[in-house]
Structures are given as structure tokens and as C-alpha cells.
Design a protein around this nucleic acid. Structure first.
Lengths: 271, 271
DNA sequence: CGACTGTTTGATGAAATTCAAGCACAGTGG
DNA sequence: CCACTGTGCTTGAATTTCATCAAACAGTCG
């Protein structure tokens, strides 16, 4: 999920995608379909779709944020991605023609709706559209593999640090501050996403604050020493667990691209 | 990766895919392109493609097995998938128009080659082809998410057990024995893939043998008590670490589908 | 036959979870 | 306005799982 970042495209009418639709399939028969894009507002806690729901649209975040989680048949859930404006959502539905995730909003958000018909039209008539969708999905896979790698090879500190840097990066892509932001997700969400206990998240945040890497005030985060954070992610030095700790190892979470679908590509490590 | 399992399709001429090509786009202009499918033999250790290589084809395993790994810019590698006959390979290239993985063979193998041109032709002219590719890629994502979940929530024993069951399942889909098989990958590969130390893999295999769950003779594995193995994967009971241990927790690795592209779907848990 | 890779096994230690409290803030209702 | 309750978060102590280090063995290949 995620990617398809075309943050502040100036020509955007209804939503981020419309610009591309207009550009890319301006005079194709898909046009009339894709033009009927609509968007809708949701509130914190609202659900966009649930696992098992029929797959009848893709979505693009216009504003706000959301999380996607997979649930074991009965037991616990696993958050698989967070979404921010511009991110494409719902491609999990292609596999079985029904959604595999639950997507819910972390705050009031606005979402564009692209019916499967429109998607099909786009795929049929727009070479670029095809490229973009495939690229996006391929990128999702790569990101997940990267994350898998992170879980396998990085310590908790590294993963959390990488998470914050990733967040910072994604927000910066959207024209927001890369140094100060407010987490829209709870510690529980973060812990779940990164595969650790919430206590660990809490402890690590505290520890990072003590090391003057970040400032934490509840959900509000300030990245104080980004270069050092990057080092932590990347290096494999030994690090003390206590508050004097300094050298650690690293991450490379998401690779993203700004801007229109047309430029969907992969950055690999962004730091 | 993986999926697109059409194991022993009887009408297969060149390779597993040709059947589908023939069926699906029989009278489309894509036909002439896709017909030029070729296949090639590789040997153990040979490389199909490397990260950074131009993305100019997709591949389908005809026989043998392979592994795909991602490498951190300099450091260690992470095996992201294993491939068996019928599996589609190379979709990692869509993201950046160049491959993101290294794919190498674990034994002598035969691989079908489908040029990007053919792929494009297929996508352009075959609704089914589109569906299948998207479904496959979507499924890859779901599988990875599942694995991420496994790493986060399951113990080593559960993951290894799940891995063996998954392998068994995939081999069974291909008409091979689900109870006895020979691992084409080393312990190192397994450990890397599952995110644990080789010593752990070794110890666990030994332990499982002592519990009469499996029989191990170097690479040759016999699953002795599959029902119990499933329980281990699924349950969350407390389990002693020692050899009397019995109850443990669970997994659900890959979801696959047999047969032609046309039936690509998702089983979810297969046990 | 060495030399090598792949594998097993044991002993030790570290990282992170779990269990257990307690705090902080928000909203509710008396 | 103030206790009261709930959620989200923090902190400490004990425990567990698993990796690391170290050594030795097994099968293979030139």
C-alpha cells in the first residue's frame, strides 16, 4: 500500500488522482468513467472497508490518515500499513476480489473513490495507468520485504527510529514539517506495526528523548537530531541499552516518490 | 512472488503459462508475442537476474527451485521468497523498471521467459491476463504481510513449523508428496528467510524430531505428525523449550491456489 | 586424503516481552 | 467545580526467548 504520492499537485481538482487522469487518459474512453471521481469524509475510528468486503473500488487518501490491518481468523491483528494523503489504498482486493484488510481512519480524513470499473477502464486504455498501478503494487511488495528485513536484522531502537524517520520523510513529501509532527496513531498502533510491545515503544521514546534525539510530548514529536538518528538506523555499532547509549544500528523503511503517478519509482533508502 | 500455480496443467506446451496464453488471448494481437515463449535451463547457484538488472521480462519456474533475496546496500541479504514450479517471478521489476532482487537457483531448474513486451501485450489485450497479474501481485503482498505478522507474533518453533507445512502444501499442489520431501535450500537459507539463527533452526529441527513430529536426515524431511504440527502453529499454548514440549503456537504462511492463472485466488490459511 | 561447506550441540548472555503498578489527561456526571 | 472512570502512556522488576560464541562432526569434492 502507500505510494502514489502526488502531494500538492497544483492542477488537482477533485483529488490528487484527477490530475493524472486528466493528463493521462484525457482522450480515451476511460475518461468519462474516471471523471466521476467522488470523495467522502470519514471520522476517527470510522472504517473504510473490512476484510471480506467486496472489492469494488480503490481509494486515494486526500487528507488525514488511516491504518490497514489484517486479522488472524479470530486472534490478534497486525497493522500492515499507515496511509497519508496521496497514498493509494485497496489493492489488497485484487487477489480475491474482496478485501483482505480492515482499513480505519486515525483522524478525520477525506478519501477519493475510484470504482473498479474506472480502474479497469484506466488499465485498458492507459499505458501509463497500467505502469503506475503495477509500479505501485510492486513497490508495496518491496516495502514489505524491506520491513521484513528490518524486523529480522534490526533492533527495536533501530526500527522505531526508522519508523520516525520514515514518517518524517513521508510528511515532508506532503509539504509538512519533517521535524515536528503529531502522531495520529497510538503507541499501541506503533508497537503493533513494528512488532514490539508498547512498553518497549514507550521506553525507547523516553530513552531517545534522554539522548536528545527527539522531543516527545504525548503524540507530538520533534526530531532534534536527525543525522544521529540516521546513524543509529544505519550503523551496526554496539549500543548500550541504558541512557548513555549512542551507537546502534539501522533501518530503511519505505521508499517513496513524490508527485504524480507518472513518476512512481523507487528511492530505496531515503537517508 | 510465487503464486500463479498451475502445476500440472495437461495442455501445457512450452511451459505452464502457455496453456493460459493459448486459452486466454487466443485470438488477440498479443498472441504472436506471447507465443514466442522460451525456456532455459539453469544450474544450482546460477543467477537469473540481479538487483539493478534491467527489467525486461517476467519468468515462470518450470522445474527446480530458486530463491530471491534483497541486499542491503552493502551489508547482509534477506531472502524474500522461494520459488517452485509454476511460480511467477520478476514482478519486483515493475516498481523501478529494474529488478530489486537477486534470484538464484537452488538446483538445476528450467524457467520460462516472458518478455515485457509480451507482458504488455497480454495486459493490453487480455482482461484475464490483467486480472491474473494484479491478483498475483496483490497476493504476493498479502503473503508478505502474513509473514510479517508471523515474525511479529509467532515463536521460532511456530515459524519453522509453518515453513515446513507451507512447503509441504506447495509441493503437494505440484503433485509431489506432502509428507516427504527434500529441501533444496540450506539451513542458512531457511534461517535467513525466517529471521533466525541457523543454530536455532538446527536445534528446533532436532527438537521436533525428538517429539516425533518430523524425521530429519540432512536435507530430507518427513512430516510424521502433521495434525500436531498444525496445532503447534495455530495454538498459543505454553510450550516447554525442552524435548517434552508439545503445545505451542502457530502460523499461516502462504496462501496459494492450484491451477491455471484463471483460478488465482486466495485460500488464506490452508490448514 | 585434507580442505571445505554445511550442520549439530553446548554454554553464556543480551534484548525484549511479560507482569505489575502507577501516572496523566479527558470526559462524565453529580 | 470536583471526584470518578477510562484510555493511553510510562516505569520497574522478573522472565524468556533467542542470538552469539565456541567447538566439533559429517559428508563432499577436488
Amino acid at each position: 500500500m502507500s505510494q502514489l504520492h502526488f502531494k500538492s499537485s497544483p492542477t488537482c481538482e477533485y483529488c490528487a488522482l484527477s490530475r493524472n487522469c486528466t493528463e493521462n487518459i484525457n482522450n480515451t474512453s476511460a475518461m468519462q468513467n474516471v471523471q466521476v471521481l467522488t470523495h467522502k469524509i470519514y471520522h476517527k475510528g470510522d472504517t473504510l472497508f473490512c476484510a471480506g468486503d467486496a472489492f469494488n473500488a480503490l481509494y486515494i487518501m486526500r487528507s488525514g490518515s488511516a491504518k490497514a490491518s489484517a486479522t488472524t481468523f479470530e486472534a490478534d491483528e497486525q497493522i500492515v500499513d499507515f496511509y497519508f494523503p496521496g497514498d493509494l489504498l485497496g489493492t489488497d482486493g485484487f487477489a480475491q476480489k474482496q478485501h483482505a484488510h480492515n482499513v480505519s481512519f486515525l483522524e478525520t480524513s477525506s478519501v477519493c473513490y475510484i470504482s473498479v470499473n474506472s480502474v479497469n477502464a484506466l488499465l485498458t486504455h492507459s499505458e501509463l495507468g497500467r505502469q503506475q498501478l503495477l509500479s505501485n503494487m510492486s513497490q508495496n511488495t518491496l516495502n514489505l520485504q524491506q520491513q521484513l528485513m528490518n524486523v529480522h536484522k534490526m533492533t527495536s531502537i533501530q526500527r522505531l527510529t526508522g519508523f520516525l524517520l520514515d514518517l518524517s520523510h513521508r510528511l515532508a513529501q506532503r509539504g509538512l514539517s519533517s521535524q515536528q509532527f503529531t502522531l495520529s496513531m497510538t503507541r499501541i498502533d506503533i508497537a503493533n506495526y513494528l512488532g514490539m510491545a508498547i512498553e518497549t515503544v514507550s521506553r525507547l521514546l523516553t530513552s531517545m528523548q534522554q539522548q536528545r534525539l527527539i522531543q516527545v510530548q504525548r503524540r507530538h514529536i520533534t526530531l532534534v537530531n536527525i543525522p544521529e538518528m540516521r546513524k543509529i538506523c544505519l550503523s551496526d555499532l554496539l549500543g548500550q541499552t541504558e541512557d548513555e547509549s549512542d551507537g546502534m544500528q539501522h533501518a530503511m523503511l519505505r521508499s517513496t516518490t513524490d508527485y504524480p503517478l507518472s513518476s512512481i519509482g523507487r528511492e530505496g533508502r531515503f537517508y
